[in-house]
Amino acid sequence: MTGRADAPRRSRFTRRKLVPYLFVLPNMVVFGLFTIWPAINGFNISFYDSANGRTFRPVGTDNYHRILGNDEFWTVARHTIVFVVGFVVASTVLATVLALLLNGQKRGRGALSAAYFLPVVVSPVVVGLIWNAALQRQTGLVNSVVSALGFGQPAWLIDPNLALISVILVGVWVHLGFYTMIMLSGLQSIDSSVNEAATIDGAGTWQKIRLITLPLLRPTTMVVITLATIAGFQAFDFIFTLTGGGPVGATTLIIQYIYENGFTPPIAYGLASAAAVILFLVIFAVTFLNYLVGRRTEAM
């Protein structure tokens, strides 16, 4: 993301001092009331203990100590990291490949793009239901193909390692179309004359992709990585209907951990809020890192 600061700064219309505030006001009122204030409140709650969300008992930083000293939390954190890394890498690579292929395709590009984009519009809850049926070991669509190809009947949702992979794959399935379109937009903003010059110089297709397209695509790739990282950390709805966090917690990620502490007995609402604060800090740090890396590559 570049957005050079000089563009708005050049247009200095400071005499109309009040106008910009009026423009941001409606959005910021809604935003402040329904996002920022509740978030501050949630931060505050992380220093209290509450079994019902209405009455509170101050406990200082106890909730944080309890989480950080809890083995289950670290298991969940490990699974979350595996999921996010797997999801981000797989969806970025696939989106890049797919965008390169689609960019080269003239005939039927619209229809093909539409097909890849279709899962984006399906509700996450339904995504989980559908894939749960499709990934059943003995009655699912996937294994009827897989076993016809001679690979037997893998236990997609039952084997703990496979289950995490299944969840990553379904996550990629949901978001791939969106990320591909972003990559495609990046590809199309690359000046075609650069490629043509390279062709004249005798560069092959692969050389052009590696030496010209991919480096020029880096800002767009950073956008996709950032979006995928945030989506990865926040994945929950489809996993909940797909595996319920199972088998034996293998796909219980951080949001579900927060949800279970906050909403299933024994309720530890303060603890859930503390975990949420930790999650926010981690996402923030990772995004900031992405931003720094992105800025450095732009400067190169």
Binding site: T35, G42, F236, S273, F280
Partner: peptide, 14 residues
């Protein structure tokens, strides 16, 4: 920063 706040975790305050 708000893009990064998951709804699930601030449901009750909202």
């Amino acid at each position: 920063s708000a893009i990064m706040i998951p709804l699930q975790v601030i449901l009750l305050p909202i």
